[in-house]
Design a protein around this nucleic acid. Structure first.
Lengths: 117, 117
DNA sequence: TAGACTGTGTACTATATAGTATACACTCAG
DNA sequence: CTGAGTGTATACTATATAGTACACAGTCTA
């Protein structure tokens, strides 16, 4: 049971407990894959789905797509594009922040967002 | 001629003008691929090589691996790992910085590096 | 003019990615 | 006791990735 698969199964089962439309079949139908495939994904029988499929799944389950992509060992392609456009700048920044505590990075995010600079 | 291939060819040719050991054959031998493959890569006849091969090539050519990976449409796997470990934090930060001018991001990098906070 | 280079064309390959399609056994409400 | 719904096993596939192996024609130089 992969980290990704386990997360999907638990999240979906929790939703199913209060809403029967969160069966494997119905979720699969909504996100546009075969039920057997979603079943295999949940049990880690196959690798995680593509980015698009993960995003549709995250949307259906009400979960954060970036977190679900991370569980699948991926990074959203829009973030990759930002880095690819200015690789030196962002590579330096990310490596610099690699070992910083969450609160330090969070403070940086807020500073940038609030334009305090 | 892809962006990546063109860059490799021009960089290698420039080096070859002053050092004959920068022929297709000899570079290919040093980085561990077939000469015909490197030739095809340079002409964009095939897609860009794997991350490992790009890094060895960047090393041999004395170029920045992050820049060469970016030209190949890729992002270094060590950066991906940083993001994957704290996806919410880094996704927010990167999206926040997406449209910021270079100097603003650079200032941030320096602030973090110099511990001015 | 032979030998040692140069780059490149052609053909092939192994592995991964991202699924589909169909059929099967089980459960549970009416 | 049936029929609608549940999850899953099995078999198959199309495309991409990341190259290898070998042969070939041209050039340069000693």
């Amino acid at each position: 049971m992969s980290a990704f698969g386990g997360f999907v199964r638990e999240t979906r089962e929790a939703l199913r407990a209060v809403d029967p439309s969160f069966s494997v079949r119905q979720v699969a139908a909504r996100i546009g894959v075969q039920p057997s495939y979603l079943s295999k994904v949940e049990r880690g029988d196959v690798g995680p789905p593509s980015e698009n499929t993960i995003v549709r799944l995250a949307d259906d389950l009400g979960e954060d797509p970036d977190v679900m992509l991370a569980l699948a060992g991926k990074v959203s392609s829009d973030l990759l594009e930002v880095i690819r456009k200015r690789p030196r700048l962002f590579a330096d920044l990310i490596r610099e922040l690699k070992d910083m505590p969450d609160r330090a990075v969070l403070r940086l995010v807020r500073e940038v967002r609030d334009g305090e600079w």
